[in-house]
Protein backbone atom coordinates (compact mmCIF):
# COMPACT_ATOMS: atom_id res chain seq x y z
CA UNK A 1 0.00 0.00 0.00
CA UNK A 2 2.84 2.31 0.93
CA UNK A 3 4.52 1.61 -2.39
CA UNK A 4 1.33 2.43 -4.22
CA UNK A 5 1.04 5.77 -2.48
CA UNK A 6 4.65 6.57 -3.29
CA UNK A 7 3.97 5.76 -6.92
CA UNK A 8 0.86 7.92 -6.95
CA UNK A 9 2.74 10.83 -5.44
CA UNK A 10 5.57 10.34 -7.88
CA UNK A 11 3.23 10.40 -10.87
CA UNK A 12 1.61 13.59 -9.65
CA UNK A 13 4.95 15.28 -9.04
CA UNK A 14 6.23 14.15 -12.43
CA UNK A 15 3.20 15.49 -14.26
CA UNK A 16 3.26 18.77 -12.40
CA UNK A 17 6.96 19.54 -12.57
CA UNK A 18 8.59 17.97 -15.59
CA UNK A 19 8.16 20.95 -17.91
CA UNK A 20 9.87 23.32 -15.49
CA UNK A 21 12.55 20.82 -14.45
CA UNK A 22 13.44 20.26 -18.08
CA UNK A 23 13.55 24.03 -18.54
CA UNK A 24 15.78 24.30 -15.47
CA UNK A 25 18.16 21.71 -16.92
CA UNK A 26 18.22 23.49 -20.26
CA UNK A 27 18.77 26.75 -18.38
CA UNK A 28 22.03 25.34 -17.05
CA UNK A 29 23.36 25.05 -20.54
CA UNK A 30 22.66 21.38 -21.25
CA UNK A 31 22.26 20.92 -25.00
CA UNK A 32 18.68 20.55 -26.20
CA UNK A 33 19.06 16.98 -27.42
CA UNK A 34 20.47 15.91 -24.03
CA UNK A 35 17.94 17.61 -21.77
CA UNK A 36 15.45 14.75 -21.65
CA UNK A 37 18.15 12.17 -20.91
CA UNK A 38 19.39 14.19 -17.95
CA UNK A 39 15.82 14.90 -16.84
CA UNK A 40 15.02 11.17 -16.86
CA UNK A 41 18.02 10.57 -14.59
CA UNK A 42 16.77 13.34 -12.30
CA UNK A 43 13.40 11.67 -11.88
CA UNK A 44 14.93 8.24 -11.36
CA UNK A 45 17.14 9.68 -8.60
CA UNK A 46 14.12 11.45 -7.18
CA UNK A 47 12.16 8.19 -7.17
CA UNK A 48 14.94 6.40 -5.35
CA UNK A 49 15.26 9.18 -2.79
CA UNK A 50 11.56 9.85 -2.17
CA UNK A 51 11.77 8.56 1.37
CA UNK A 52 14.74 10.78 2.17
CA UNK A 53 13.02 13.97 1.09
CA UNK A 54 12.18 16.24 4.03
CA UNK A 55 8.42 16.47 4.48
CA UNK A 56 8.34 20.26 4.60
CA UNK A 57 10.28 20.68 1.35
CA UNK A 58 8.49 21.27 -1.95
CA UNK A 59 9.30 18.41 -4.36
CA UNK A 60 10.30 20.89 -7.06
CA UNK A 61 13.08 22.31 -4.90
CA UNK A 62 14.34 18.81 -4.15
CA UNK A 63 14.21 18.01 -7.84
CA UNK A 64 16.14 21.15 -8.75
CA UNK A 65 18.82 20.19 -6.25
CA UNK A 66 19.18 16.79 -7.89
CA UNK A 67 19.09 18.40 -11.33
CA UNK A 68 21.83 20.87 -10.46
CA UNK A 69 24.19 18.09 -9.32
CA UNK A 70 23.43 15.85 -12.26
CA UNK A 71 23.91 18.70 -14.72
CA UNK A 72 27.31 19.57 -13.31
CA UNK A 73 28.29 15.89 -13.42
CA UNK A 74 27.04 15.68 -16.98
CA UNK A 75 29.08 18.71 -18.05
CA UNK A 76 32.18 17.35 -16.33
CA UNK A 77 31.73 14.06 -18.11
CA UNK A 78 30.72 15.27 -21.55
CA UNK A 79 32.31 18.63 -22.33
CA UNK A 80 35.09 17.76 -24.71
CA UNK A 81 36.46 21.26 -24.89
CA UNK A 82 36.46 24.16 -22.46
CA UNK A 83 35.15 21.98 -19.66
CA UNK A 84 36.00 24.44 -16.91
CA UNK A 85 34.36 27.32 -18.77
CA UNK A 86 31.23 25.28 -19.42
CA UNK A 87 31.19 24.34 -15.76
CA UNK A 88 31.61 27.94 -14.67
CA UNK A 89 28.84 29.02 -17.01
CA UNK A 90 26.53 26.31 -15.64
CA UNK A 91 27.23 27.47 -12.06
CA UNK A 92 26.38 31.06 -13.02
CA UNK A 93 23.21 29.99 -14.81
CA UNK A 94 22.15 27.83 -11.87
CA UNK A 95 22.35 30.91 -9.63
CA UNK A 96 20.42 33.07 -12.10
CA UNK A 97 16.66 33.21 -11.68
CA UNK A 98 14.29 33.08 -14.62
CA UNK A 99 10.70 34.28 -14.34
CA UNK A 100 9.52 31.30 -16.36
CA UNK A 101 10.87 28.79 -13.86
CA UNK A 102 8.88 30.04 -10.89
CA UNK A 103 6.46 27.40 -9.57
CA UNK A 104 3.03 27.48 -11.07
CA UNK A 105 0.73 25.37 -13.15
CA UNK A 106 2.36 23.67 -16.12
CA UNK A 107 -0.84 24.15 -18.11
CA UNK A 108 -0.60 27.91 -17.62
CA UNK A 109 2.88 27.91 -19.09
CA UNK A 110 1.81 25.89 -22.10
CA UNK A 111 -1.34 27.91 -22.67
CA UNK A 112 0.68 31.12 -22.48
CA UNK A 113 3.22 29.73 -24.93
CA UNK A 114 0.52 28.59 -27.35
CA UNK A 115 -1.20 31.97 -27.19
CA UNK A 116 2.06 33.78 -27.80
CA UNK A 117 2.96 31.46 -30.68
CA UNK A 118 -0.32 32.27 -32.36
CA UNK A 119 0.47 35.95 -32.18
CA UNK A 120 3.69 35.55 -34.11
CA UNK A 121 3.80 36.54 -37.77
CA UNK A 122 3.76 33.60 -40.22
CA UNK A 123 7.43 34.02 -41.12
CA UNK A 124 8.50 33.71 -37.48
CA UNK A 125 6.31 30.66 -37.01
CA UNK A 126 7.87 29.07 -40.06
CA UNK A 127 11.37 29.63 -38.68
CA UNK A 128 10.35 28.11 -35.33
CA UNK A 129 8.77 25.16 -37.08
CA UNK A 130 11.93 24.46 -39.05
CA UNK A 131 14.09 24.87 -36.00
CA UNK A 132 12.11 23.00 -33.35
CA UNK A 133 9.75 20.71 -35.21
CA UNK A 134 12.19 19.65 -37.88
CA UNK A 135 15.29 20.16 -35.73
CA UNK A 136 17.21 21.97 -38.45
CA UNK A 137 20.35 23.98 -37.71
CA UNK A 138 20.41 27.63 -38.72
CA UNK A 139 22.32 27.06 -41.97
CA UNK A 140 19.72 24.54 -43.19
CA UNK A 141 16.91 26.93 -42.28
CA UNK A 142 18.75 29.65 -44.12
CA UNK A 143 19.01 27.39 -47.19
CA UNK A 144 15.30 26.65 -47.02
CA UNK A 145 14.29 30.29 -46.67
CA UNK A 146 16.90 31.87 -48.89
CA UNK A 147 18.58 33.69 -46.04
CA UNK A 148 21.87 33.49 -44.15
CA UNK A 149 22.66 31.47 -41.05
CA UNK A 150 23.59 34.65 -39.21
CA UNK A 151 20.24 36.27 -40.05
CA UNK A 152 18.38 33.16 -38.90
CA UNK A 153 20.28 33.09 -35.59
CA UNK A 154 19.46 36.73 -34.98
CA UNK A 155 15.82 36.18 -35.93
CA UNK A 156 15.57 33.22 -33.54
CA UNK A 157 17.19 35.28 -30.78
CA UNK A 158 14.62 38.02 -31.23
CA UNK A 159 11.67 35.65 -31.53
CA UNK A 160 12.68 33.93 -28.29
CA UNK A 161 13.03 37.28 -26.54
CA UNK A 162 9.61 38.33 -27.76
CA UNK A 163 8.08 35.07 -26.65
CA UNK A 164 9.71 35.37 -23.23
CA UNK A 165 8.15 38.80 -22.72
CA UNK A 166 4.80 37.64 -24.00
CA UNK A 167 4.74 34.55 -21.75
CA UNK A 168 5.88 36.50 -18.70
CA UNK A 169 3.13 39.11 -19.28
CA UNK A 170 0.54 36.43 -19.78
CA UNK A 171 1.52 34.61 -16.57
CA UNK A 172 1.59 37.89 -14.65
CA UNK A 173 -1.91 38.74 -15.89
CA UNK A 174 -3.14 35.33 -14.85
CA UNK A 175 -1.67 35.53 -11.37
CA UNK A 176 -3.11 39.06 -10.92
Amino acid sequence: MAATNTKLDFDAVLAETHARIRAYIAGMGIARHEVDDVAQEVYLEFYKSLEKMPEDLAPERWLKGIARNLCLNHIRRCARRGRLHHQALAEILARTESELESPGRVESLHVALDTCLRKLPPKSREILQLRYEQDLPSHSIADALGSTAEAIRIALFRIRNGLRDCIANSLARESA
Binding site: A26, G27, T96, S98, L100, L117, Y132, E133, R160, I167
Partner: peptide, 17 residues
Protein backbone atom coordinates in the same frame (compact mmCIF):
# COMPACT_ATOMS: atom_id res chain seq x y z
CA UNK B 1 21.23 33.81 -21.69
CA UNK B 2 19.07 31.97 -19.21
CA UNK B 3 15.87 33.36 -20.73
CA UNK B 4 16.97 32.29 -24.19
CA UNK B 5 17.77 28.79 -22.96
CA UNK B 6 14.49 28.41 -21.09
CA UNK B 7 12.34 29.66 -23.97
CA UNK B 8 14.25 27.41 -26.36
CA UNK B 9 13.49 24.45 -24.11
CA UNK B 10 9.80 25.33 -23.86
CA UNK B 11 9.61 25.55 -27.64
CA UNK B 12 11.36 22.20 -27.95
CA UNK B 13 8.92 20.60 -25.51
CA UNK B 14 5.97 22.01 -27.38
CA UNK B 15 7.03 21.52 -30.99
CA UNK B 16 9.60 18.72 -31.28
CA UNK B 17 8.05 15.50 -32.51
Amino acid sequence: LKRQLVVEELLGQRLAV
